[in-house]
């Protein structure tokens, strides 16, 4: 490789290093990715991320909590989803996990997944839980798409 080509590669690399943190910030604001991750130089900008996940199955007018880690068929994807929410935020929605819950529990017509991220409220400075609801209807019964 010639020196000139090496210089061009280095120039592109420097440009990437200079621009990526701004893209990273945009991803944090838009999709709630974890500021601590993905090399955005944004460590210690927010408290270390703590999340809370709730899974609810709805069938015959009853709501029941689901513990996916207790079901071997779901545990792997549940762990993936947990990691996904922690790192990628809204870029990792629970679509696949919801479908797997429908397969595992034929009695449910709907599945509700609630993701919560702990944050310090900007106004009150108190700890807050920022929740997002994903509601799924069993495929083939009316709406097959998630409602947020």
């Amino acid at each position: 490789m010639s020196t000139a080509l090496r210089k061009r590669v280095a120039s592109a690399f420097i440009l990437f290093v200079a621009v990526w943190p701004l893209v990273h910030y945009g991803l944090c604001r838009t999709f709630d990715i974890n500021p601590w991750k993905f090399n955005g130089f944004a460590m210690y900008t927010v408290p270390v991320r703590q999340i809370e996940l709730v899974y609810v199955g709805i069938g015959n007018g009853r709501e029941e909590r689901i513990e996916p880690f207790e079901h071997p068929a779901l545990a792997k994807e549940a762990k993936r989803f947990q990691q996904g929410v922690w790192t990628l935020g809204r870029l990792y929605p629970p679509h696949l996990l919801a479908n797997m819950i429908f397969d595992e529990f034929p009695q449910y017509d709907e599945v509700l997944v609630v993701t919560g991220v702990y944050r310090i409220n900007r106004e009150t400075k108190l700890m807050d839980l920022d929740q997002r609801h994903y509601r799924y209807t069993r495929p083939g019964r009316d709406a097959a798409h998630p409602e947020e």
């Binding site: 420097i14 944090c28 130089f41 408290p47």
Partner: peptide, 30 residues
Amino acid sequence: RIVFVVCIFYTGLQKLLHGYYFRGEVLAFY
């Protein structure tokens, strides 16, 4: 040297943009 300068500069800028240092929120949390 440029990479290091950019890295440290952004660690400051990101703190400014995320906005949890004006009233010491993140430090208070830790």
